[in-house]
Design a protein around this nucleic acid. Structure first.
Lengths: 209, 209
DNA sequence: CTATCATTCAAACGCTCGTTTGAAACTTTT
DNA sequence: AAAAGTTTCAAACGAGCGTTTGAATGATAG
């Protein structure tokens, strides 16, 4: 491998960022644990901010790709799609990434949460841009499943994201799968109820285009 | 007032912590905007960490007191209590604190989220201790409302916390009340569904109004 | 008024941070 | 093998941080 230094920095940074936060983690700590020279970070990644961005974007891309991949499969299975499967396609990739490396219970979700909370201005834009793409797809899918315009669903999907991020971040390995199942059920019920209430009352149909 | 310096520091710190995070906000920035001397922080609060703790605990106490107060009122109204009222007692104080000072849309929730994400070790203990008290009360209340043991409800209440914190933190002033109403509905449906699964299997899909 | 205590203030201290530097070590190309 | 390019390294830089200090100022009580 011609570029193991760059990768080792990226991997070590990812772990430390998730465990301690972006700001708290120092380049000296990263380079020490990655067994590379201090200056290697600036040489290979430009700056600490750029490193944060790379670490974060790499993980977020993985998550979103897997989500869309699973969603596509669900949509191909049946039309209209089943709501449970859609939410599973949203939730499962998150816990998959948390459990794929042993002992990583919720670490990735903690990374996401930190990224959101520490509010580095540049990260916020990326999150919004990346997420909006995925959210639109899932809102559309849920819209098909429940037969309601997708605009009404954005808020409820945000509820789902919040619940997922918060609970996954503090759930230990063993409970992850149970929690995910409970979350899907919880979210399905919430979504169905919101639609039921919206359609039983007056139906304000607005053109979306 | 004989101690306006101490209060001004506390108030300014609260605002800046919520907007920028604990670590990013410097004592020089706080003291500059509060129009007090730099050394005043250490004189009146001991250290920056102690200041963070004070700011955080003050707000959290307010939130929890108001929640328990509203819950108590709900429990006194009817037995068994109505689930919607319980969740409102949980959600409304949060948005109340966010809207009591103009332009503070979600600032307090952002503070909570930052506290959770950033200074895990330091504040986590306080959050857990304070929250566990309140959570036990609300789990008990929901347990009474739905007629199910409270142990099954902890997870679902965590979903509610996550959804509340996440969405309130990024919701702007005008939408706060609408979001809160949607969240209560969402959470009620999720809780009822979780209980329904435990007891029976059939799920009526009629409108509930 | 004077002595005592609490508060404010400008200045500095020690430390750690991200970043830069310029030479050494290694690879690749010619 | 020499030259050119890439990567590593120890050392240092400048800036900003939380904190401390000791004198100046204000308030309180004898």
């Amino acid at each position: 491998m011609p570029d193991s230094t760059r990768q080792r920095i990226l991997d070590t940074a990812e772990r430390l960022f998730a465990d301690q936060g972006f700001h708290t983690t120092t380049l000296r700590q990263i380079t020490r644990e990655a067994r590379v020279n201090l200056a290697a970070v600036n040489y290979h990644h430009g700056s600490k901010d750029a490193l944060i961005l790379s670490v974060f974007q790499r993980k977020l891309d993985q998550l979103n790709d897997e989500r869309l991949r699973q969603l596509e499969r669900v949509m191909a299975e049946s039309d209209p799609p089943e709501l449970e499967r859609i939410l599973e396609a949203f939730v499962h990739p998150a816990l998959l990434m948390s459990t794929e490396s042993a002992g990583d219970g919720g670490r990735f979700m903690r990374l996401l949460m930190r990224a959101w909370a520490e509010n580095a201005t540049h990260l916020q834009g990326i999150i919004a841009r990346q997420y909006s793409h995925v959210m639109r797809a899932f809102a559309g899918a849920v819209s098909r499943a429940l037969g309601t315009p997708p605009d009404n669903l954005r808020r409820q999907l945000d509820f789902l994201i919040g619940a997922l991020t918060y609970t996954m971040a503090e759930t230990r390995d063993a409970d992850v799968e149970t929690t995910a199942r409970a979350l899907v059920r919880f979210g399905c019920a919430g979504l169905r109820e919101s639609v039921a209430r919206a359609s039983s009352h007056s139906v304000p149909e607005e053109n979306i285009a």
